[in-house]
């Protein structure tokens, strides 16, 4: 048994403080979301409400926007992630195959989109041209091939020995068959990584939706959250009566934050296993 030194204790305490720094804002938000307006005003350093109430959540769910927002976001995830996976993985597998004419050109064209893009306005005009604005397809189709995940998947596909695919080819299997029945089962960890990161990306989608969708009945949850938070910010300079109403708003606001965070919390434990593979994403996506 090693002796515990002063430095060990110091490290322990500093890490502890940093943990608190991350956790306390969440605890505070959770506490406020379960608190009554009166308690919020009296208990200033609130981390756990004494008389928890579901009123804020009830009020929040009474607001139709949050339900439609949740549905829209879920739909974007369920339709968008398979699309991301299909487009990104098939392209990554195709470009990992043996030499074929135009390979360099295609690879270059894919990677170029990472270096250069026109920004949001040309994309918006394209969506308008295709009559996709004000539909959730504008948000879903705006992200198809993800170049970061493309690079990760391709690196893995390239490391699979060619002999495996060649023998399947001799057996008469087509490229799609090879991808689905030989490569993808081998690439499960990579597929899982990419899928999980795509789920998070899709769930967190807000900017494209903010620009492309004006119809209030199909805006995703993040945009709904934004508007709920903005609402109470606007009424900031006010009298005491209004202040009371605003503080009540605070509970609803934090309830909205928790509802939006919850799905990420559910995915997070699975995500964690794939961190090391995600490092590259972290390195280049920063």
């Amino acid at each position: 048994m090693k002796k515990i030194t002063f430095v060990d204790v110091l490290v322990f305490v500093i890490i502890g403080c940093l943990i608190l720094l991350i956790v306390v804002p969440f605890l505070n938000a959770i506490a406020i979301s379960f608190a009554t307006q009166r308690e919020y005003l009296n208990n200033l350093l609130m981390l756990a409400p004494k008389e928890p109430t579901l009123d804020n959540y009830r009020n929040l769910l009474g607001d139709q926007r949050i339900i439609t927002g949740f549905k829209t976001s879920a739909l974007i995830v369920f339709l968008g992630v398979p699309l991301n996976l299909f487009l990104t993985l098939s392209l990554a597998f195709g470009t990992s195959r043996a030499c074929f004419p135009g390979k360099k050109l295609i690879l270059g064209a894919i990677l170029f989109t990472m270096l250069f893009n026109g920004g949001i306005l040309p994309l918006y005009m394209q969506m308008r041209e295709l009559k996709l604005t004000n539909t959730i397809w504008s948000v879903i189709l705006a992200s198809g091939v993800n170049v970061f995940y493309f690079v990760i998947a391709r690196n893995f596909f390239c490391s699979i020995p060619q002999s495996l695919t060649e023998s399947a080819q001799l057996d008469g299997a087509g490229e799609w068959r090879i991808l689905f029945s030989i490569i993808l089962p081998l690439a499960k960890p990579i597929v899982a990584t990419v899928a999980l990161f795509c789920i998070v990306d899709r769930w967190n989608e807000w900017y494209n939706a903010l620009i492309f969708i004006r119809d209030n009945s199909i805006i995703p949850l993040q945009v709904v959250l934004r508007s709920i938070v903005m609402e109470s910010n606007i009424s900031s300079n006010t009298s005491s009566m209004e202040a009371a109403a605003r503080n009540f708003d605070m509970g609803i606001k934090m309830a909205a934050v928790i509802v939006t965070t919850l799905p990420i919390m559910c995915v997070f434990p699975f995500l964690q296993k794939h961190f090391t593979k995600g490092i590259m994403v972290g390195a280049i996506k920063a």
Binding site: G94, R97, L121, P122, M125, Q126, L141, E175
Partner: peptide
């Protein structure tokens, strides 16, 4: 050579179509 590799082009087609419409198309803007 292209004909021999047609299956590989088929594999890449969906991704490339997306790139043309939603990545390169908007660049005309």
């Amino acid at each position: 050579k292209i004909w021999k590799n047609r299956a590989i082009y088929g594999l890449m087609l969906p991704g490339l179509v997306w790139l043309v419409i939603f990545a390169y198309g908007p660049m005309s803007g």
